[in-house]
Design a protein around this nucleic acid. Structure first.
Lengths: 212, 212
DNA sequence: GTCTATACGGCGATAGAC
DNA sequence: GTCTATCGCCGTATAGAC
């Protein structure tokens, strides 16, 4: 039998160039003014089309947000995979830097907040989060093996959670005006990374001061 | 000259019992369905009053949210100060447990997301964040002194940021459906805390309320 | 000081016209 | 494939009743 509540609704093709441009406008709107500013009318105004056209491609706002999350998520996944491959000798540093990138962190935070109470968006974010986590884990284990990082007090999984989570947390608080402890925390992590992944891989000097 | 556009607007007294009950409804609504569900009409329906009355006490939604944040913030500050005083020998454990409390973490997260793009709400959250941070810092330094915690790789400020931030981050991700790494991270921190602040001997700790 | 009634424009969403 | 008309809910403002 057919789905009972699903009414046939005409929707624009996913390959449409217009559709892609609309998603660009959505991202710009979110970065500029937050997800609350993303309305059909606002997107339409920025793209210089009618709001009806936006709704033609994205029947509900949830559809719009899910599409934006998916596009950006796949894009980020590809980028982080490429970076991890290009700098396979320092995966931690790659992930640390990646987690701090302005646009990525901001959009991630924005999507996180958005999914907080938009049920239909949760699974999309969760899927993406888990997928990224797996890629990160594989790259790090390729270098550090199963025995873990540092003194072994943290599992690799937990370590990655903290490593990528701290910048997210900092950005979240920054967006709200708090700043205490941020510089301290960043600096401490950088020192820790210096110890784990020295700047120059060609010089395996053990004279580097160890910060446990 | 007088303010040009500001007309005198009548607002309900802050001592009103009705006002306090409305804020209770706001908190319950936020916990149940998120801040997006907080509308004049929804609050009014839950409190069984007219939406106009809600507006009488809180002329704009921002006023409503700011009032809710302030009330809850002062309440939490008082509670954490009391707990830190009662268990001055284990401030880290107190803060760790406090950061995990369901209602506190959820509301904090909700307010954080709310302030993300509600300008008028930011300073309220930032103020509260900094105030709590200072209380935490004082309590921890009272026990651990200026030299810091553990091996000294993290400043006390940075350590507290991570200690209280990780539970927040976990809850944020949980609310979105992700769960990888959470148990690992929690367990690792608990073990670390065990080392820093060993569980009390079998002294009759009658003050601690057993949950479940 | 408390509270109600009413009105306005913007919003998401739907159905259907070009 | 594109766009309009329309609906009901929203925040907000105001005037006035108790």
């Amino acid at each position: 039998m057919a789905s009972p509540t699903r009414a046939p609704r005409r929707v624009g093709a996913e390959t449409s160039k217009t559709r892609d441009q609309l998603l660009d406008c959505v991202e710009r709107l979110m970065l500029d003014k937050g997800y609350a500013a993303v309305t059909y009318r606002a997107v339409a105004a920025r793209a210089d089309v009618t709001s009806g056209l936006v709704q033609y491609y994205f029947p509900t706002l949830d559809d719009l947000f899910v599409a934006a999350i998916r596009r950006r998520g796949e894009q980020n996944l590809a980028r982080v995979m490429a970076a991890l491959e290009a700098r396979a000798d320092e995966p931690l540093r790659v992930l640390w830097e990646f987690s701090q990138e302005e646009s990525i962190a901001s959009l991630t935070t924005e999507f996180l907040a958005l999914g907080n109470h938009r049920k239909s968006i949760r699974s999309e974010i969760a899927d993406n989060t888990e997928r990224v986590r797996e890629v990160q884990l594989r790259a790090v284990e390729a270098k550090y093996g199963e025995h873990g990082i540092g003194d072994g007090s943290l599992s690799t999984t937990a370590f990655l959670f903290v490593l990528t989570g701290i910048p997210k947390l900092i950005r979240l608080e920054e967006s709200v005006g708090a700043s205490t402890a941020h510089a301290d925390a960043m600096e401490a992590f950088e020192r820790y990374l210096d110890a784990l992944e020295p700047a120059k891989p060609a010089a395996p000097t053990r004279r580097k001061k160890r910060v446990r």
